[in-house]
Design a protein around this nucleic acid. Structure first.
Lengths: 202, 202
DNA sequence: AAAAAAACTTAACCCACATCAAGTAAATTT
DNA sequence: AAATTTACTTGATGTGGGTTAAGTTTTTTT
């Protein structure tokens, strides 16, 4: 992976959504810089001031909070062509509360807060793109929130599998439990019950 | 309340955030139309196709989902100068799953989906405003989600009171319970326990 | 290849909140 | 002002998933 190829991937992604002139493409591409994040290293670390946004070029991240009992709660997993960042710390000037940790050696295109604002000034069309991306993200989170308050862990699990088939091959089970909002022990127990029920039926 | 005054209120709100020329102000103002929503009537109703966005000029709404057991789950309350709308149905072309019901006689400025898109074309500066509003909304929802998965009902209650002092005078208790993700019986019991603990201390 | 660490499983017990039921109080309708 | 509906309270009982603990299996490190 090199920066040129990574930037091309970003531009391809953006071109699917809006049209940019060659000059605009150039401006956008050069605003981002490629970083490699080794497995288990962090792109975002809670209590730090790094106000970065990242576009995942390759690899996998888990984005999570840590609660006061030191339990981790996965907000989402980020794969190729996903955006990651801490929107909250873009407003409050506080250190971030989010963590984003690489689950395998990964590459991301990174941009800082000031550069982002400069970029929006230079290429106003991006405002529209990021408005739409943010609205879609909000819509997805609203659904996830609703599921969390209205369905039990088993229903949330089946919804996750349905919506993201193959995730169990990509992500360890205890992190799926964390995404579902339950403990690894509970997910293990639940899967056994599901298996037992399927055995009885057949 | 009349449309002229309502539109002025919207423009005042927007002027706090971005600068518009008089012509732009005119274009924006005229894109919105004033509706009165009587107490208990709906601005959004699940399973309908109405793709509207509203700016609350006066009054109060509760925005909620209904789960498969017919329990209602409040996503947020909307007061003066708040935006309401179903972002999800702007993407999926499905009928909305959200409800927005007036809790007292209320007034909102309403705009439809097509008109919104036209407005963004006519006044591109609005893209930026709505990007920022949506990012802030997303940030707030992320915090709410984290609180829901990491704190118990009592902690969520105290957080709500702290963040929105006086809400108990504005919103009936069973709807606060619904916002907190518990049943009215549980909130009633919890408040009693809190009182009892305070009595013992003094 | 051995040692250590991380991931997963299973089981007994526990608790925050749900469920069910039956009341009282307050607000709305007639 | 009486009747009805809606909001709130209280108690007994149930349960999904947490807690604790002790295993086994798999992966990573040395």
């Amino acid at each position: 992976m090199n920066e040129e190829i990574a930037r091309k991937q970003l531009i391809d992604y953006i071109n699917q959504k809006i049209e940019l002139t060659p000059e605009e493409q150039f401006t956008v591409a050069n605003a981002y810089h490629l970083h490699q994040i080794k497995k288990k290293d962090f792109f975002l670390k809670e209590d730090t001031q790094c106000k970065l946004q990242g576009f995942v070029v390759g690899g996998t991240f888990r984005v999570f909070y840590t609660d006061k009992k030191s339990l981790e709660h996965v907000l989402y997993f980020a794969f190729k062509d996903w955006w990651m960042g801490d929107i909250a710390s873009f407003f409050d000037d506080n250190p971030t509360k989010l963590n984003a940790q690489a689950m395998e050696d990964s590459w991301i295109l990174v941009i800082g807060r000031e550069e982002t604002e400069q970029l929006f000034t230079d290429v106003p069309k991006l405002e529209r793109l990021f408005r739409i991306i943010t609205q879609r993200t909000l819509s997805v989170l609203q659904k996830r929130f609703f599921l969390t308050v209205s369905a039990n862990a088993e229903e949330r699990y089946e919804e996750l599998i349905k919506r993201h088939d193959g995730i169990e091959q990509l992500v360890p089970q205890h992190q799926i439990a964390s995404y579902l909002g339950i403990l690894p022990e509970s997910l293990s127990r639940m899967k056994k019950q599901l298996m037992d029920r399927r055995m009885k039926k057949n």
